[in-house]
């Protein structure tokens, strides 16, 4: 099953990835090939199989409601590409 370039563009939008037109072309071909390959799974009858998201047989892991030291504002923002005072700066977001 081949993917269309439109599908690839839509997925790129969902994933927030900018591609040049020739990359869209390349990815459409490569992803189609991979999707073809994974389609072999459709051969298997899994109607009565429960999905397995996690192999661990554990549950109920909690931590106590205790306050731990936070980072200082400087530590928190040390890696920020666009620090604005005590804030992270981003281009204007229209609500």
């Amino acid at each position: 099953m081949a993917l269309t370039e439109d599908q690839v563009r839509w997925v790129a939008h969902l994933a927030r990835l900018e591609f040049a037109p020739e990359e869209i072309e390349l990815f459409t071909a490569q992803l189609s090939q991979i999707v073809d390959y994974v389609n072999q799974l459709q051969k298997l009858d899994t109607e009565k199989v429960e999905p397995l998201a996690h192999c661990l047989p554990i549950s109920n892991v909690f931590r106590p409601d205790e306050v731990q030291p936070s980072l200082t504002v400087d530590e928190a923002l040390a890696n920020a590409p666009d620090r604005r005072g005590a804030y992270y700066g981003v281009p204007a977001v229209l609500d």
Partner: peptide, 22 residues
């Protein structure tokens, strides 16, 4: 709660910006 859902930072309104993060 005293702390956040997944970390120990304070869960408190009105703190100085970005002072309760980890």
């Amino acid at each position: 709660t005293k702390s956040k859902l997944f970390c120990g930072c304070r869960n408190e309104f009105g703190l100085p910006p970005n002072s309760a993060t980890c």
